[in-house]
Amino acid sequence: MTNTLLQLAAPAILLTMTSPAIAQNASSPPPASVDLGADRITIGIGPALLPSYTGSDQYILVPGIAVQGQVSGIAFDTAGSSLYVDAIKGHGGTGWKPQLGPLIAARLNRTTRIGDPRVSALGELNTAWEVGVWGGMQRTGVVTSPYDTLSITASYQRDVGNAHRSYMVSPSISYSTPLSHKDYVSLSAGADYIGRGFGSYYFDISTVGAAASGLAAYGGADRAGWQDWNTSMLAAHSLTGDLTHGLTVFATAGHQRLLGRYARSPIVADAGNAGQWNGALGVAYTF
């Protein structure tokens, strides 16, 4: 699952804290009372700091909320304003597991709270309502214990509304491990490949837009290509119970680097920055 800097919630709040991989201390077997395949739901909330748009050098503070869980072996989680469902039931144990399922997303880039007045003068854009599919392979029990996980995934999503009318393909790799019954860390890296309509919609500037904003006209983003690479991390500490239930505090941090013709857009090169950070602090409850 990709980190796309969707503009309402922390893109790095990937609350994988409740996956079987982080259920127990790495140096001890799970207690008999713990069912790693049991139903569970985690709800997390907290403030998130994000760029005001993709390519901005100005930041906004927004409320973030995320939900992650598993019901009858079907896993689901949110990432920003996206929802992912793994339709292949998990067995709750170590070994390999295929992942495949649908996703839906609302892309809110430049729909509100545009920080730079020149970019704001270009006008607000439509929300992109996207649907797609994601899949991959996950290995539980990799290096440190029977409970760490390595996941390699890719997603495809397309606008079905009246925005960019194009697509994004996002491969990613992530590694997660418990440090104890109460502590957990996760690292991920990915990239985003976008269609020509996507690039043109978010990065090109028409002559009319140039006259209104003072930015130079630009048409170089009207081709498919790699938009960015991105990294993120999450750290969590359980305050009550352990990582499988109770109250947890978490922190996230992420970085995105725009590439090539998209980084050269005046929206980025003159009014923003190709490198952007994001982060969040919050609390989560698992039941």
Rank of each mutant, 00 (worst) to 15 (best):
T153H: 13
L243C: 03
N25Q: 03
A48G: 14
Q157S: 08
A263L: 08
A21W: 08
S56H: 00
M137F: 15
G93R: 08
A251K: 00
Y167F: 10
A154T: 13
L259S: 08
A269M: 06
I205L: 11
G209N: 09
L103C: 06
N230Q: 12
V268Q: 08
A284L: 06
T42M: 12
Y175Q: 02
V71D: 08
H245P: 03
T144R: 14
A274I: 02
F287R: 02
G246K: 10
Y156M: 04
A210E: 03
G272W: 05
S174V: 04
G132V: 09
A23E: 06
N162W: 02
G141N: 12
T140S: 12
G195F: 08
Y167N: 08
H181S: 10
L83W: 00
G136K: 15
I152N: 04
T54D: 10
S180H: 03
V142R: 15
P266G: 03
Q70K: 14
P29N: 06
S265P: 03
Y167R: 04
A163D: 05
P146F: 05
G92W: 11
G101M: 09
G132N: 10
T240C: 03
R264S: 14
S27N: 08
A128T: 10
W129G: 15
P63V: 02
T112V: 07
M17Q: 15
G115N: 07
R113M: 07
P266V: 00
E130C: 14
G136F: 14
A271L: 04
T144A: 15
D77Q: 09
P29D: 05
D148Q: 11
W229K: 03
A48K: 01
R113F: 10
N278T: 01
G279E: 02
A216I: 06
G141W: 05
W96E: 08
Y53A: 07
T252M: 03
S28F: 03
A66S: 15
A105F: 07
P29V: 05
G80S: 12
V208C: 04
P178K: 02
T94I: 09
G93T: 12
Y285V: 00
G190S: 13
T286S: 10
P102C: 08
R158C: 02
N126A: 15
